[in-house]
Nucleic acid binder design. Structure first.
Lengths: 106, 106
DNA sequence: ATTGTACGACACCAAATAGTGTCATGTCAA
DNA sequence: TTGACATGACACTATTTGGTGTCGTACAAT
């Protein structure tokens, strides 16, 4: 029984700036080990590792062991859920323009 | 000096399921006072009020006083930031399909 | 004028979060 | 085989979060 199937909420996972930056770094570099991620942040290795674990629990990253390092890779697919959620509200932030148009019609 | 210009991160604001539900309720009903929001949740009025405050700090809701009640209204525009962030990653969750196509070309 | 409703502001509390340092294990390289 | 490196697991800590109850005030209605 792995500890990784703890199931994190994607919304929670992307709420942290550090984790968003990790996602970005992985998007840019395809595959990265922890010790290459770490120097991009001011915090220590352990902290970055824990953020990676949270991202794994949200299924936003996968990892494979390669010798003595563990390579992390982005899996963007869970972000689809966020996009789906957002799509419902898109009409609202254009509504101001729509309302303005309605008012102008008077 | 208001306390409301504390500037909350939109990503943090939408991380909580309660707050996402509030956003949805406001989207459906245009304008709602606290006491009409509250019965949709299992928690007390104070807790809902605090969630509303967080949403206000993220500029996701506006409020106006109307007699003895305060009407809350959705302002979806800050969600644009989330959408912009997401748009960068859209290509990645379609990449599997793209890669599959590439492989099939061999 | 009094009463009840709606609300914001506070004080408080438990649990989760984000960070730290340390240790044990596995692996590469000399 | 010895030593340095990469990592995961653990114990610990401070701060933030999400909830509670209570109080004071503003307002509406009788």
């Amino acid at each position: 029984m792995k500890k990784t199937d703890e199931k994190r909420d994607v919304f929670v996972a992307i709420a942290d700036p550090t984790r968003r930056k990790i996602i970005r770094l992985l998007a840019d570099s395809d595959e990265l080990p922890l010790h290459e991620l770490t120097p991009h942040f001011q915090m220590g290795r352990t902290a970055v590792s824990k953020h990676l674990m949270i991202l794994r629990e949200a299924n936003l990253v996968t990892n494979r062991k390669a010798g003595r390092e563990t390579k992390y890779r982005l899996n963007a697919e869970p972000l689809q859920e966020v996009k789906d959620w957002l799509s419902f509200y898109e009409k609202f932030w254009n509504e101001r323009a729509a309302m303005l148009k309605d008012i102008l019609e008077d």
